[in-house]
Structure formats: structure tokens, C-alpha cells
């Protein structure tokens, strides 16, 4: 199949004088054209760091990619010069950030903010009128009346602001869109609208999308594949259907589902995962989930778990050693 993005063995650290945070530890995944991959996990699992390293927007000078490759349409982004990277950003791939309240420049008209992307990446001789027309089209694409282009961010509601942020990201019709919890800051009805719109636009513009979220409901709604992240690692990688079906799962994934209330069954109490995410400056040895794992075995504390493949369903856990149909991967 046609792969647009391939991340191989990516590791990212945040280094300060005092400590080193191991934010992402050797993750690999790939994304096919026109598909949506969900990156799921708790706060601090390394989801946003993964996204920022794909866009090479890690905070400087603390954020460092220590190993791995990021291939966008076959080109390793980590080898590109800054100028080459800038040419790709906004044009071939763009990002939607978590908080629409602060993601827009408060003293610039929204139309101008959309136009900037078009001017940076557009045809060299486009006229002002052409840019204006594209701005209006883009606004209408995300459901904002074109006449509002001359308004400032403070004149928009939260949901409308997120639409503007999406419009900025989509202005040049990128091939890859990374959405970092695009609906977390919005209330539930607006969430549904924005998500529906994003799925629709993905199909319309034939984009691929990485959806970062901690909301399994969103995963069910928009994602084709899911990668469950824990302490900077992907512990389970499956299709959305597989993740939501019973069967073999990583104990962490099972724990995540145990934390969701069931509307039909008479669940009295939720069963949250005991304990907290490990300190990323001092990750546990072996399987990073072992201090919280209900199925802990002796080797979990010392031996890093193998990745076991059930066809295209990957689980990194000692529990399934030897059970894999496709063997070790």
C-alpha cells in the first residue's frame, strides 16, 4: 500500500543541565495515504513529542532526536536542512494544536493568518486577489462565513477559533495533517462538530492524518489504526476494530478500557490502572509498565518485552511470548 509517513525507531530526549527526560523511546509506525492513525495514551506518554519531532518543532535547544528516521514520502526529514524543512511545513504537512484559545496570534486578523501560509507556499506570482479568494474558500471549507476574515481571534468562540486553526493548517491542502488533541479544549457538542468536519475534510482533500488523543471515543469515531503509547513506547498497535474487540491486548490497553464507564452494563465502580506513569527521567528497567501491571512476571522487571505480532496487531508484552501467529517481529 501507499505509505506516506514512516517513523522508524524514533527516540527523543529533552536535555537540561539538571536532568534528561526520555520522552520517546524507539517508536516505529507507518501511515498509509488517506488513513488516520490515532496516537493514544496518558498525558506524558510522548504523543505530542512524537508529533513535534515529525514537524521538527521540538523546543530548542532542549529537545533532541537521539535516534531514528522519519520518512515523509520517502524523504528522511531529519536529514533536511532548515530551509528545506520550512518549505515542507505548512505545504506538505501541517499541525493543529491543542488549545485554539492560544494558537492564534491575538493581534492579527484571522484572514491574514491564513493568508500567510498561502503566501509562503503559494505560486510565486499569485496576486493579492487570488490569495484573498483562497482565504475565503478555506474559511468556507471549515464552515466560517468568508466575511469574517477581517475579524480578530477574540471575536470568535472557542469552536470557531479551532475552525480557524484548522483552516490555517489546511490552507495549502497538505498531504499529512497532525492533530494534537484538537478537541480537548472544546465542549462536547462542538467536539462532535469539529471531529465530523475533520473526517469529512480528510476524505475530501485526500489527506492522511495523525490524531493525537486520550479519548477512546474519538479513536472509534475517526481513526483507522491506533497506536497505544506508554512512557514513550508504543505498547500496542492495531486497527481500531481490533482495539475495541475482545481478545489479546496489552495489559495497559485493557486498563485504559477499564477506566471508561459502560453505559449498558451495571458497572458500580470504574477500575482505573493503579499507580502513576513512571518518571521519564528514571524509567523502570525491563517492561516500563511492570510497576503497575496486574500480570507482572519475573522477567518483566529485567527483560524488555518482545513485540508479538498477531497478523497486523502488534503487542509488546511478555504475556504473549510464543503465542504469535506471525512470530516475533
Amino acid at each position: 500500500m501507499n505509505t506516506i509517513l514512516e517513523v522508524k525507531d524514533l527516540s527523543v530526549e529533552y536535555r537540561t543541565d539538571l536532568e534528561t527526560v526520555h520522552a520517546v523511546n524507539g517508536i516505529s509506525f507507518s501511515l498509509h495515504r488517506g488513513q488516520t492513525l490515532g496516537l493514544v495514551g496518558e498525558t506524558g506518554a510522548g504523543k505530542t513529542t512524537t508529533a513535534l519531532s515529525i514537524l521538527r518543532l521540538l523546543p530548542k535547544p532542549t529537545g533532541v532526536v537521539t535516534a531514528g528516521e522519519i520518512l515523509l514520502e520517502g524523504v528522511n526529514l531529519l536529514d533536511l536542512s532548515d530551509a528545506q524543512m520550512k518549505a515542507l511545513l505548512g505545504e506538505k504537512m501541517s499541525m493543529i494544536f491543542q488549545d485554539p484559545m492560544s494558537a492564534l496570534n491575538p493581534i492579527m486578523k484571522v484572514g491574514e493568518q491564513i493568508a500567510e501560509t498561502l503566501i509562503l507556499h503559494g505560486a510565486p506570482h499569485q496576486t493579492k486577489k487570488q490569495v484573498e479568494q483562497r482565504v475565503e474558500e478555506t474559511l468556507e471549507l471549515v464552515g466560517i462565513p468568508a466575511f469574517r476574515k477581517n475579524e480578530y481571534p477574540h471575536q470568535f468562540s472557542g469552536g470557531m477559533k479551532q475552525r480557524v486553526v484548522i483552516a490555517i493548517a489546511l490552507a495549502c491542502q497538505p498531504h499529512l495533517l497532525i492533530a494534537d488533541e484538537p478537541t480537548t479544549a472544546l465542549d462536547v457538542t462542538i467536539q462532535a462538530q469539529v471531529l465530523a468536519m475533520m473526517s469529512e475534510l480528510r476524505n475530501k482533500l485526500d489527506m492522511s492524518m495523525i490524531m493525537i488523543t486520550h479519548d477512546l471515543g474519538i479513536v472509534a469515531q475517526v481513526c483507522d489504526d491506533v497506536a497505544v503509547m506508554y512512557a514513550g513506547e508504543i505498547v500496542e498497535y492495531a486497527t481500531t476494530e481490533q482495539i475495541f474487540s475482545p481478545g489479546a491486548h496489552h495489559p495497559y490497553t485493557t486498563g485504559l478500557f477499564g477506566s471508561i464507564p459502560d453505559l449498558k452494563g451495571g458497572t458500580k465502580r470504574l477500575t482505573p490502572i493503579e499507580g502513576l506513569m513512571p518518571d521519564p527521567t528514571e524509567l523502570p528497567s525491563g517492561c516500563k509498565f511492570h510497576p503497575r501491571c496486574p500480570h507482572k512476571m519475573a522477567q518483566c522487571e529485567t527483560v524488555p518485552p518482545p513485540t508479538v505480532a498477531f497478523e497486523n496487531h502488534l503487542i509488546s508484552c511478555h504475556l504473549y511470548t510464543g503465542q504469535a501467529e506471525g512470530g516475533l517481529k
Partner: peptide, 25 residues
Amino acid sequence: QDYIRTALSKGMPDRQVIFRHALKN
């Protein structure tokens, strides 16, 4: 600020981000 990151994610050159977005604010 987040909007600086937004501007950077557009692929805008650093100098332009600093003067157009950051300094004015």
C-alpha cells in the same frame, strides 16, 4: 506562546516569525 508555534508550523522563516508575530505582541 502557542501562536508562535503555529506560525512556525506554517513553515515561516524564523526571522519573519520573530518580527511579524513575536515582536509586535
